[in-house]
């Protein structure tokens, strides 16, 4: 395991809190950590072990001020599901990789929504999580490309 993907995961957590929304006047930033987790779960899971996923999720929870363990659990479960479906995605063309991410985002968003609704005992309006995940899926290709660059550099370095 190299620390690079994990460091990228942590950087993604920080990035998720940078108020980019202020530029456009909307508040939601994409789920950057989910992109990193999905990318490395498919491409090289050995480089992003479950403990790293948990750490990234927990860091997000600590910074976000929401329920502790919410995103840690969502990310670890999502990671497990992606790993189980990895064979479908590992050598697939980019479009399939992207569609796989769409399914992953839908799954993660739905799971998080269910957990939050159970915690609060009410049906939390789902519009914000839908928007959040839509933005995430839309900007995924840019980050997948970026991660790809980093990945090849790490491999070359190794």
């Amino acid at each position: 395991m190299t620390v690079m993907p994990f460091a990228m995961g942590l950087a993604c957590v920080l990035l998720a809190f940078v108020p980019f929304g202020r530029i456009f006047g909307s508040a939601l930033t994409p789920a950057f950590p989910l992109m990193a987790i999905y990318y490395w779960a498919v491409v090289k899971p050995e480089m992003f072990p479950p403990v790293a996923v948990l750490a990234v999720g927990l860091m997000f929870d600590l910074l976000s001020g929401g329920a502790i363990g919410l995103w840690a659990l969502v990310y670890v479960v999502t990671y497990a599901v992606v790993i189980s479906q990895r064979m479908l995605l590992v050598n697939a063309p980019f479009s399939a990789f992207w569609i796989g991410f769409l399914a992953t985002a839908v799954f993660a968003g739905f799971l998080a929504w269910v957990i939050v609704s159970v915690i609060h005992g009410i049906f939390v309006p789902p519009s914000s999580v839908v928007r959040h995940m839509a933005v995430t899926v839309a900007v995924f290709p840019i980050f997948a490309m970026l991660f790809g660059r980093i990945q090849t550099r790490v491999l070359q370095g190794g």
Binding site: P50, L54, L62, I68, G69, L73, V76, V77, Y79
Partner: peptide, 26 residues
Amino acid sequence: HRISLVFMLTLAAALLLLGRAETYVF
């Protein structure tokens, strides 16, 4: 990898439950 995945799943679920108690540590 599998074993560690199962362990982390359990840990995350435990954190979610423990975090609800809003303990001083968190």
